[in-house]
């Protein structure tokens, strides 16, 4: 429950391309709408991470405040010993929940959980010694205790080593690199064929508005940027191996210099095709990486993940799959959309 990643803080955009991510100009009504749309995903993600923290916190709070009340709620007999247990455990969880919500790195707080488990062991030991405990239950409970702390310990160690961080993304000073893979249950030829027609890309790539093919190897790309703006560039295919690989890069004069490749390899055991996408964005002179990140309006890592998932949906089921909640394009209860309110 405690493993959400922290939000990356991004500095304000600066330099010659500040209008890409800056959003300092007054917004017209249409731009305002778009801005709402583009940041909706980001907000919902952040909300989710925090929801887990709040979930923990809201439940920890009553334990400290009114252990008597909580004892009643949880159906635990309200005696002195139980009340103390609840209070001690509650205080600790409160600390942990709070840490998850407020700290940029949660590893330290997970270590807090490990310590907490050690404490529970001690508490349970106390319970086992109590004269109310029946012998057979004591045996069962003692055996059950053996595996204590293992999970928390493992997660804390992983997080400390950085394994809990988002994978496949290296942010350099001079640009941003994203690497993502997914397996699609279609042949490499089919998957290659669909991708090769770049006009298909906006169907599953959220931030792409439009791609026009203007020649054998050339295309024109238009992407959404925050604050209702767009960035555009011409791209050319630099390598093209049917059924295997497509690589492209933007041409001179691009708003954001970028390149990408997608590689298709047969997955073992007739599982279809492993699709491996690499994208690289380099900012023009003087622009910080934050501007590029602003292009996505959220974690680029998550964005590409979502794009690939939608790609798979289109390839395998024929369409991008909608649920009642996702049609609203912003956090919304799972209810059917009202007439005319479908976001996409």
């Amino acid at each position: 429950m405690t493993l959400q990643q922290s939000r990356q803080t991004r500095g304000p955009a600066s330099g010659p391309k500040a209008e890409v991510g800056g959003g300092t100009q007054p917004l017209g009504p249409r731009q305002g709408e778009d801005r709402q749309q583009s940041s909706a995903h980001h907000r919902s993600r952040e909300r989710f991470s925090r929801a887990l923290g709040w979930f923990s916190l809201s439940l920890g709070l009553p334990a400290v405040a009114t252990p008597r009340e909580l004892a009643r709620l949880t159906g635990v007999p309200d005696d002195q010993q139980n009340r103390t247990v609840l209070r001690v455990v509650g205080v600790r969880e409160l600390g942990v929940g709070f840490g998850i919500l407020t700290q940029p790195r949660s590893a330290a707080w997970l270590w807090g959980r490990v310590a907490g488990d050690a404490m529970d062991l001690a508490l349970l030991g106390l319970a086992l010694r109590s004269k109310h405990a029946q012998q057979s239950r004591v045996t069962a409970a003692t055996a059950a205790v053996v595996g204590v702390t293992a999970l928390d310990l493992v997660r804390a160690v992983q997080l400390s080593r950085g394994l809990g961080r988002p994978s496949g993304r290296v942010r350099e000073d001079r640009g941003m690199h994203v690497l993502k893979t997914i397996t699609v249950n279609r042949s490499p030829e089919e998957v290659y064929g669909f991708w090769h027609d770049f006009r298909n890309l906006p169907r599953f790539m959220d931030h792409l508005e439009d791609v026009q093919v203007i020649g054998e190897r050339r295309s024109h790309w238009k992407a959404k940027a925050p604050a209702g703006r767009t960035v555009e560039w011409d791209a050319e295919i630099v390598e093209d191996r049917p059924g295997e690989l497509i690589a492209w890069r933007s041409l001179e004069g691009a708003d954001v210099r970028n390149s990408g490749s997608v590689r298709f390899t047969p997955a073992p055991g007739r599982r279809g095709t492993e699709v491996r996408v690499e994208l690289h964005y380099s900012p023009p002179g003087g622009v910080v990486g934050a501007t590029i990140a602003g292009l996505f309006g959220e974690e680029p890592d998550q964005q590409v993940n979502g794009d690939l998932r939608r790609f798979k949906q289109v390839m395998e089921t024929g369409e991008v799959v909608q649920s009642d909640a996702t049609t609203h394009g912003r956090p919304h209860p799972a209810q059917p959309p009202k007439d005319g309110v479908i976001a996409q």
């Binding site: 429950m1 979930f55 923990s56 439940l59 920890g60 334990a63 909580l70 709620l73 949880t74 159906g75 635990v76 007999p77 139980n82 247990v85 609840l86 455990v89 509650g90 600790r92 969880e93 409160l94 929940g97 959980r113 907490g116 488990d117 529970d120 508490l123 349970l124 319970a127 086992l128 109590s130 109310h132 405990a133 029946q134 239950r137 409970a141």
Partner: peptide, 19 residues
Amino acid sequence: AHAPGLLNVYDRAKQAVML
């Protein structure tokens, strides 16, 4: 799941506070 006795206290407490 529910249990009579101390194990119930233990698990309910831990679940209630999300441990």
